[in-house]
Write a protein that binds this DNA or RNA. Sequence first.
RNA 1: GUGGACGUAGCUCAGUUGGUUAGAGCGCCGGGUUGUGGCCCCGGAGGCCGGGGGUUCAAGUCCCCUCGUUCACCCCA
Length: 424
Amino acid sequence: MDPKYSAPRGTADLTYPESEKTRQLLSYAREVFEQYGYQLISTPVLESTDLFVRSIGENTDIVNKEMYTFEDQGGQMLTLRPEGTAPVIRAYLERGLQSRGLPQKLYYYGPMFRRERPQAGRYRQFSQAGAELIGSMDPMADTEIISMSADLFRKLKLKNYVLRINSVGCRECRKEYIADLKAKLDGMVPDLCEQCRKRSSGNPMRVFDCKNENCVTVLEDAPVISAYLCEHCIEHYHTVLLGLEILGIDYFKDDRLVRGLDYYTRTAFEFQFEGLGAQNTVSAGGRYDHLVEELGGTPTGGVGFSLGVERVLLAVEAEEAEPFELRGVEVFVAGIDIPGVEILKALQVIRDAGISADTDLMDRSLKAQMKHANRVGARFVVIAGGEEHQRGEVTLRDLEESEQWTLEIKEALSLIKEKKERGL
RNA sequence: GUGGACGUAGCUCAGUUGGUUAGAGCGCCGGGUUGUGGCCCCGGAGGCCGGGGGUUCAAGUCCCCUCGUUCACCCCA
């Protein structure tokens, strides 16, 4: 098989049942967001390139090598959004949402794009659902943001995850830390991998992301941000953690957790799952107290997170959680020696009664129609035609229980409804 | 961008030291009941063996290139 056209690398076609699972996952996510009082915001898939350069950071991998950027016919530099926070903040500022009162609680979902080599749990086009809480400096806001992921995972019956959390400090306390870290790293240069040498000058905290065994060992001696946190940051962090404890959310304090985007301050967190392969972070986020300002607004704090839809689905698969309901049509109408218009009428009556109905459009034998009904997952078959039709009746067959009745269609409908209601 | 693995029917895969018309299971279509599914039986459709080049009397099988998939690194959801 060699199709003429294929989907671009790292993109996918979602077909049933994955398409349906995705839809249900998003509906669970929406439930959670709305329970917390968040409102949907929808922003363009395209943004001007410098929005991302400015917010994510010039020397991050996302900006350096992963963005789908192009110049349009009018000479504008545009980028397919690689993440969701910056666009939401841009919209917040552009639409003057602060005038509706603070905090603004917004959620979003949709496709994101990063040009990386695909692997398990990583695609060039992927979906994220996320939320932003803009305007609050309260540690309870951080806790709330974290708690939404935990709630969603509970709805999805997921258990095998760990919440890793850290405080990366504010501008003030980070200053001193970075200076010390840099000094320490300079002394370690011969022992570090090439990548870490680069990082130590550009973005020193990211050395803690290194998986190189040697670096990990050497870095055990490196200073850690927690020792440098200022009073305010410590108090904030403790209050966030206290909130998690009160909500019964287990966490693991990880001194070395660093996020890849430059805009994070104070709280940073990740939910990691088992059994997903190398890409095991399913949901992540943190506080960004300078981002609004950075993008041209007045100083305004914020917290947010986003979760990878495909990764959540992988986790559901790995845990065999089965939180989704996959069902077919309720009634299949099979016809024998009966004009198509009669079938149409029957279908309409059934559908008007609020019951989903399908029929054979392939001119098949009754046997083949029954087989098809079974395959599409129909619980009931209404057989229309033949002698019953002369008497104004149909045969209703319950495929699950293998019993059938001959009766008027109205009676058939009430029988179906009755069985549905009683959960039979 | 780097490295490994793999590319044979819609799907999962067999194809012996290269040897004549390329197979199985599942799925699909039809039949076994001139009006009845799921199990069983029978039949059928469906493959330029990813593409190109080379070695050979002979290539799905060996070599090279290329495209694609996949896993991992980097990084991230």
